[in-house]
């Protein structure tokens, strides 16, 4: 376990995040996010505040805008309107050094998107070397440390094609972690995996949560959401329909659409 990446000195008030944590103390905050593809509105005003060390789970039917919301959060998808703040710093608007800001927001994709021409270590260290201008040796140490956090330091020299899907996704997580981000976004991180490989990835995420990482997770892993999430958000048709602690969302959903959606998952 690398001490360097563990978040230190978490103030007591946010050690146990309030379900509807106040916007003022939010580590990550999205306000009135709108996005359309052509004439198709996909996000119709999303407001979301994530507290430090909180794991927020986003559920919703396909096409409800979950992935688009996540991709807007680091402006891979340019929002039409709305604001994004990370630790009070604005990510939207003109004059923002996007490349600098993006290092504070890690994102993990459904399809891993590892660089096939680089080894696992090469994948993890590319941004360290080229963006943070770390010298080779220092980047190697930091890269191995990140790989160690996902249990893959012994696979550093392997290329993505030599790794299983679960291992690839863990390398992708290490690639994001290596930059020491403030918040991590997961876009259906286990959807492309064979069922028997899902567990390893979820274990890594659980571990990150234990170490205090702030996370927003779009996923259909209901059992994991129930166990690990601090808060669950249900999205439908470009809006947040309902949010609350997992016990409430899964045990006693208030909205018909939430109920209809959850009833399709029998566990």
């Amino acid at each position: 376990m690398s001490k360097a990446i563990i978040r230190l000195a978490v103030p007591d008030m946010i050690l146990s995040p309030a379900p509807q944590g106040s916007a003022a103390t939010a580590t990550f905050r999205v306000e009135a996010l709108h996005k359309s593809f052509g004439a198709d509105p996909v996000l119709k005003g999303i407001n979301l505040s994530v507290q430090r060390s909180e794991m927020v789970f986003v559920l919703g039917p396909s096409g409800s805008g979950k992935s688009t919301m996540l991709r807007c959060c680091n402006r891979l998808e340019e929002p039409d309107a709305g604001e994004i703040f990370i630790q009070g710093d604005r990510l939207t608007g003109p004059g923002v050094d996007l490349n600098k800001m993006r290092q504070r927001i890690g994102i993990v994709f459904q399809s891993f998107n590892l660089y096939p021409h680089l080894s696992a270590l090469g994948n993890v260290t590319l941004a360290l070397r080229k963006v943070q201008k770390m010298p080779r040796e220092k980047a190697r140490v930091a890269g191995l440390e990140a790989l160690d956090r996902v249990g893959l330091s012994d696979r550093a020299r392997h290329y993505p094609s030599q790794l299983s899907g679960g291992q690839q996704q863990r390398v992708a997580i290490a690639r994001a972690l290596a930059l020491n981000p403030t918040v991590m976004l997961f876009d259906e991180p286990t959807s492309a995996l064979d069922p028997e490989l899902v567990g390893d990835v979820l274990d890594v995420m659980r571990d990150m949560k234990r170490q205090g990482m702030t996370m927003v997770v779009v996923s259909h892993e209901m059992k994991f959401a129930r166990d690990a999430a601090d808060r669950v958000i249900f999205m439908d048709d470009g809006l947040i329909v309902e949010e609350g602690p997992p016990e409430q969302i899964f045990g006693d959903p208030q909205h018909n659409r939430t109920r209809a959606f959850l009833s399709r998952f029998h566990e």
């Binding site: 993006r102 590319l126 963006v131």
Partner: peptide, 16 residues
Amino acid sequence: KGQVEAARSTGLGQRD
């Protein structure tokens, strides 16, 4: 396209 997205999301600029 995911390759470019992965790179950009880690802060790499267009040229890098």
